[in-house]
């Protein structure tokens, strides 16, 4: 079947099996391999992309369900030589080791910072009406992104640093 996606601002048409997930369409059909498959079951977060601005697991959705949707992948944020502030912060804070979960961490952080800016609460919010951006909040909100190298403290340092850069 045929599905049209707008990926990183470009309209792309994909011919695919109805079973093809958004993740496999991005990786194998569109050859945007920055988005990773770590578990294929929504249990690790390595496949996080933005769909119409919201972060989701690309492995747990069918490509067919996203006809006409706007997808942002890690490739859409920046590239070597022109990294986004958040990407640059991951480099300077060593917010990764093996790098396999990194695209997902950065895409998730991108979506998460929007949610935080909107004032959406989290499980760690002491007051549901008044949300802050402290480390406990960011840690809870990023918990859908596992990192087996366990770069967590440095990922969150990078998110805090990158968020400042994205705002300025």
């Amino acid at each position: 079947m045929q599905t049209t996606l707008t990926v990183n601002g470009h309209t792309r048409s994909v011919d695919h099996d109805p079973r093809t997930t958004l993740l496999d369409a991005l990786r194998d059909s569109l050859r945007l391999t920055g988005t990773k498959k770590g578990c294929d079951h929504g249990q690790c977060g390595a496949c996080t992309v933005l769909v119409n601005g919201r972060r989701i697991n690309a492995c747990l959705t069918l490509a067919a369900m996203h006809d006409g949707d706007e997808i942002t992948t890690i490739e859409g944020l920046g590239e070597p030589g022109a990294l986004s502030p958040l990407q640059q912060a991951f480099v300077s804070c060593d917010g990764y080791q093996c790098g396999f979960c990194t695209s997902g961490q950065i895409m998730s952080a991108t979506g998460m910072l929007e949610e935080l800016a909107r004032g959406d609460p989290s499980h760690a919010s002491p007051d549901l009406a008044q949300v802050s951006a402290d480390d406990a909040e960011i840690a809870e909100r990023m918990s859908g992104n596992l990192c087996r190298c366990a770069a967590y403290p440095f990922i969150r340092e990078a998110i805090s640093l990158g968020a400042k850069g994205e705002r300025s």
Binding site: T33, T73, E75, L83, Q87, V91, G99, T102
Partner: peptide, 21 residues
């Protein structure tokens, strides 16, 4: 020193095995 491979990793351009097709 920052990792020289860092910019590739944060932009999804470092190539892991399953990325090859």
């Amino acid at each position: 020193m920052d990792r020289p491979d860092g910019p590739l990793k944060v932009s999804g351009q470092a190539t892991y095995t399953a990325d090859a097709l």
